[in-house]
Measured scan of single mutants.
Amino acid sequence: SSQSQGISSSSTSTMPNSSQSSHSSSGTLSSLETVSTQELYSIPEDQEPEDQEPEEPTPAPWARLWALQDGFANLECVNDNYWFGRDKSCEYCFDEPLLKRTDKYRTYSKKHFRIFREVGPKNSYIAYIEDHSGNGTFVNTELVGKGKRRPLNNNSEIALSLSRNKVFVFFDLTVDDQSVYPKALRDEYIMSKTLGSGACGEVKLAFERKTCKKVAIKIISKRKFAIGSAREADPALNVETEIEILKKLNHPCIIKIKNFFDAEDYYIVLELMEGGELFDKVVGNKRLKEATCKLYFYQMLLAVQYLHENGIIHRDLKPENVLLSSQEEDCLIKITDFGHSKILGETSLMRTLCGTPTYLAPEVLVSVGTAGYNRAVDCWSLGVILFICLSGYPPFSEHRTQVSLKDQITSGKYNFIPEVWAEVSEKALDLVKKLLVVDPKARFTTEEALRHPWLQDEDMKRKFQDLLSEENESTALPQVLAQPSTSRKRPREGEAEGAETTKRPAVCAAVL
């Protein structure tokens, strides 16, 4: 046999249950609850290399294929790409003598399909299967379609040439079993990697079954959420508030809700932002270029202005709740996480202390139980975000031990490091100062900020419009641009040419 590394010779191994799959997660993409704000000051410096380099560890398999027929071997997927077919160049070659004697062998292509993985959001991997055969590759009886790919989820059954000719079961060793999710959700989405997690739940990458488009699904544990919100009269209202707010909003710089499922837990389906959180971008770069800050901040102002015009105060604006559309420097941003939002009543007064301390406005800290506050709290938070983006460190921090965090904020005395700000323009610093004003009545509004000289930049605004146009074009394009080929190089076993392929839609398939 010419099988590559990772293939075992026996096809009769006992199949494990899916609970053996491991679970991976990374930083929070968007969480309903406010958790302790991640610290920006503690960015690790590059460490000196050791005298002796450690040995390379043996790579762990990321997936496993269990053979369902004699003549096929099990495969431990270690590499990122595997070709399957009769050709000797394939990493998994159909060359077992037992297999060659079967009637089905002649229906398999020289290069029938490939399984591979690509880097997705949060640097996690996504597994795909890609059909290159004349007679078809099927996943859970659905045709992939020649020249098309679809994501592979845990426990997928792979069939060759005929939908009933099941050859492998695919085990993704990095994700959960699909069966743990409600059927209504599974009918519409293929669940994938964990993108982030918080005290009350997690955010998962998923794929729409009909279109193969990526989405983010925010899962909120009702049990954990009820415990964490025990002081509230009705904890469920917080989730329902977020859903109702998101459904009503329609702005290019605000995250869109696509679906909602109320089962044992809450499942909020949101558009996916491939670039992750602004927080991670700031930490990764230490600070952002001023031109990049301007492009992002302009969009934040437009989003918050839209919220305020619609009578909504976000109340928890922070870099973790600003998501980026891509890994590119120039990209769209979207505001997310409306769990603490407040729809303005007639009095415009709110007395609930919520939000993240580092970003809270002075009037929030001094008015607990005594007075109210209004939309100006969001403008203060925007000032803190702009400060961080321009400088790479927070204006107020618990680690300045000589003054408490509350006193720093209520006095408006931010930590100004001259040598850092020497590289920032006077106009940018002036806008920061106009937003970090203790008196909410004297603080800049979103309208005033948008009129500030720093943002009178036609090149930046043109760039934003171009990015918007690109997004609109990409969302308007159909996901499947061509029909699967019906040509046949070899006959199917026991049926006429093209008899099955043309009847089945290529579900969740995307043209390369």
Rank of each mutant, 00 (worst) to 15 (best):
E244F: 11
L246K: 00
L246E: 14
L246D: 01
K247P: 15
K247W: 15
L249P: 05
L249Q: 12
N250L: 13
N250A: 04
N250V: 12
H251I: 01
P252L: 09
P252M: 13
C253Y: 04
I254A: 06
I255D: 02
I255N: 06
K256E: 10
F260K: 04
F260R: 08
F260Y: 14
F261A: 10
F261G: 14
F261Q: 10
D262N: 11
A263V: 08
A263I: 02
A263D: 00
A263Y: 04
E264G: 06
Y267D: 06
V269Y: 02
L270G: 02
E271I: 11
E271L: 09
E271S: 14
L272I: 11
M273P: 01
M273F: 07
M273E: 14
M273A: 03
E274A: 08
G275A: 12
G275M: 03
G276D: 05
G276P: 03
E277K: 03
L278Q: 02
F279M: 13
F279L: 14
F279Y: 07
K281S: 10
K281P: 06
K281G: 02
V282Q: 06
K286T: 13
R287H: 14
L288D: 04
L288H: 07
K289Y: 11
K289D: 05
A291P: 09
T292D: 10
T292I: 13
T292Q: 12
C293Y: 10
C293N: 03
L295Y: 07
Y296P: 00
Y296G: 01
Y296D: 04
F297V: 10
M300A: 15
L302E: 01
L302F: 13
L302Y: 09
V304S: 04
Q305M: 00
Q305C: 03
Q305S: 03
L307S: 14
H308W: 15
H308D: 09
H308R: 08
H308L: 02
E309N: 04
E309G: 06
N310A: 12
G311D: 13
I312Q: 00
I312A: 01
H314R: 05
H314P: 03
H314N: 02
H314A: 02
D316W: 00
D316I: 01
D316S: 01
D316A: 07
L317C: 13
K318D: 03
N321G: 01
V322G: 02
V322Q: 00
V322F: 03
V322C: 07
L323R: 02
S326M: 08
S326Y: 12
E328N: 06
E328T: 07
E329N: 05
I333A: 05
K334W: 02
I335P: 00
D337A: 00
F338I: 01
F338W: 01
F338E: 00
G339W: 04
G339R: 06
H340M: 05
H340P: 04
S341T: 08
K342V: 00
K342R: 06
I343Q: 00
I343F: 04
G345I: 11
T347R: 15
S348D: 05
L349H: 13
M350F: 12
M350I: 12
T352F: 02
T352G: 03
L353A: 12
G355T: 07
G355Y: 00
G355M: 05
P357M: 15
T358H: 03
T358K: 15
Y359M: 04
Y359E: 03
Y359L: 04
E363S: 02
V364T: 00
L365V: 13
V366W: 15
S367I: 14
V368C: 07
T370W: 14
T370V: 10
A371Y: 09
G372W: 14
G372T: 02
Y373W: 15
Y373H: 05
N374H: 11
R375F: 11
A376T: 11
A376K: 04
A376C: 05
V377N: 00
V377C: 07
D378K: 00
C379V: 08
C379F: 06
W380K: 01
S381L: 00
S381G: 14
L382I: 04
G383N: 01
I385Y: 01
G392W: 02
E398D: 10
R400N: 15
D407Y: 07
T410I: 10
S411V: 06
K413Q: 14
K413S: 00
Y414M: 02
Y414R: 12
N415I: 06
N415L: 04
I417D: 01
I417V: 06
E419G: 15
E419N: 12
V420C: 01
E423V: 09
V424D: 02
E426F: 12
K427Y: 00
L429C: 15
L431M: 11
V432D: 03
V432C: 14
K433H: 14
K434G: 13
L436S: 03
V437A: 12
D439F: 00
P440A: 01
P440T: 00
K441E: 06
F444M: 15
T446F: 13
E447L: 10
E447D: 10
E448F: 07
L450F: 07
W454L: 04
W454G: 06
L455W: 01
L455D: 00
Q456H: 12
Q456K: 09
D457C: 11
E458V: 14
D459H: 11
R462D: 13
R462S: 08
K463F: 05
K463V: 09
D466S: 09
S469G: 12
N472K: 04
N472F: 13
S474D: 07
A476R: 10
A476H: 04
L477S: 07
P478V: 03
V480G: 06
L481I: 10
L481K: 14
Q483T: 05
Q483H: 02
P484S: 09
P484I: 00
P484Y: 00
S485F: 08
T486W: 14
R488H: 11
K489N: 09
K489L: 06
P491A: 15
E493P: 11
G494N: 06
G494S: 03
G494P: 03
E495H: 13
A499D: 13
E500V: 07
R504I: 09
A506E: 04
V507H: 09
V507I: 12
C508M: 10
A509I: 05
L512H: 13
L512N: 14
